[in-house]
C-alpha cells in the first residue's frame, strides 16, 4: 500500500496531463455532438420527406460502424480526400459524429414524446413551426430527454478513451505509455480507473440533480 502511494505520487502528475486532454476531448465533442444531434432530430421530425430520409440513412450508417473504425477513417482515410486533421481534431470529430447520432435519436424520441395537443395549441394561437419548436416543443422535449442525454454524456466521456488509438495522449494513452515504460501495470491502471471514476461519478451526481430540478418545475 505504501508502495502504491509512493508510486502514485510519481505517476499522477503524468496521468493528470491525460485527464485534461480527456476533459477537453469530451467537452468539445459533446458540444459538437449535441449541436449536430439537435439538427438531425429537427431534420427527422421536419416532415420534409427527403430530408428526414437522408438524415435517417446517415444516422443508421454512422451508428452501424464501430467508433474505432470511424476514427481510423477520419484520421487515415480523409487526408486522401484532402481533409488533413490533427489526431486531436480527428478524435473530436469522430466522437462528435458518432455521438451526434445517438444524441440525435434521443432528441427525436423526446420531440415525438411531446403531446400532439401541444403542437395544436401552439398552432391555434398562430405560431409558425420554428417558434412552436423553440417555445413549446423543445422546452418540453428537453425535459423528457435529460436522463438519456446524461447517459450519453457519461458514455461519451468513457468512449473518449478510444481516441488513444489514433495517438491522442489522453488519460488512457498516458496510462498505456506509463505502464509500458515502468511495467507497473497494477498501479498505473488502477490509477487510470480511479481517475475516470473521479470524472464520471460527479457527472452522474450532477445530472441527477438536474433531473430533479427540472422535474420539480413541471
Amino acid at each position: 500500500m505504501t508502495d502504491f502511494i509512493a508510486s502514485a505520487g510519481v505517476y499522477l502528475p503524468i496521468l493528470l496531463k491525460g485527464v485534461w486532454l480527456t476533459i477537453a476531448v469530451t467537452l468539445l465533442s459533446l458540444g459538437l455532438a449535441t449541436l449536430l444531434g439537435l439538427i438531425w432530430a429537427l431534420f427527422r421530425t421536419s416532415g420534409i420527406r427527403w430530408l428526414a430520409l437522408a438524415t435517417r440513412i446517415f444516422v443508421e450508417f454512422v451508428r452501424g460502424v464501430p467508433i474505432l473504425v470511424v476514427l481510423f477513417y477520419i484520421y487515415f482515410v480523409m487526408p486522401e480526400f484532402g481533409l488533413d486533421l490533427t489526431a486531436f481534431q480527428a478524435g473530436v470529430v469522430g466522437l462528435a459524429l458518432t455521438y451526434s447520432c445517438y444524441i440525435g435519436e434521443t432528441f427525436r424520441a423526446g420531440i415525438e414524446a411531446v403531446d400532439k395537443g401541444q403542437v395544436e395549441a401552439a398552432k391555434s394561437i398562430g405560431m409558425k413551426t420554428p417558434m412552436m419548436m423553440r417555445r413549446v416543443v423543445l422546452p418540453q422535449a428537453f425535459r423528457i430527454v435529460v436522463p438519456p442525454y446524461a447517459n450519453n454524456m457519461v458514455m461519451l466521456l468513457k468512449d473518449s478513451s478510444q481516441v488513444s488509438v489514433i495517438s491522442v495522449a489522453e488519460l488512457t494513452m498516458q496510462g498505456k505509455m506509463l505502464a509500458s515504460s515502468t511495467f507497473d501495470n497494477m498501479t498505473v491502471f488502477t490509477l487510470v480507473a480511479l481517475l475516470y471514476l473521479c470524472l464520471t461519478i460527479p457527472l452522474n451526481f450532477a445530472m441527477r440533480r438536474v433531473e430533479v430540478a427540472m422535474g420539480s418545475a413541471k
Binding site: D115, G117, Q118, E120, A121, A122, K123, S124, I125, G126, M127, M131, R135, V136, P139, Q140, R143, A217, K218
Partner: peptide
C-alpha cells in the same frame, strides 16, 4: 388562426409555463 381561436377538450395548456405566461404567449410572441 390568430383571428379564430380554439379551446380544446383536453385544455392543452403549455405545462412549462404559468397560467399568466400561457395567456401572454400569443400576444407577446405571435
Amino acid at each position: 388562426r390568430t383571428r379564430v381561436s380554439m379551446v380544446f377538450q383536453r385544455f392543452n395548456l403549455f405545462p412549462h409555463r404559468t397560467a399568466i405566461e400561457n395567456v401572454m404567449e400569443g400576444p407577446r410572441y405571435v
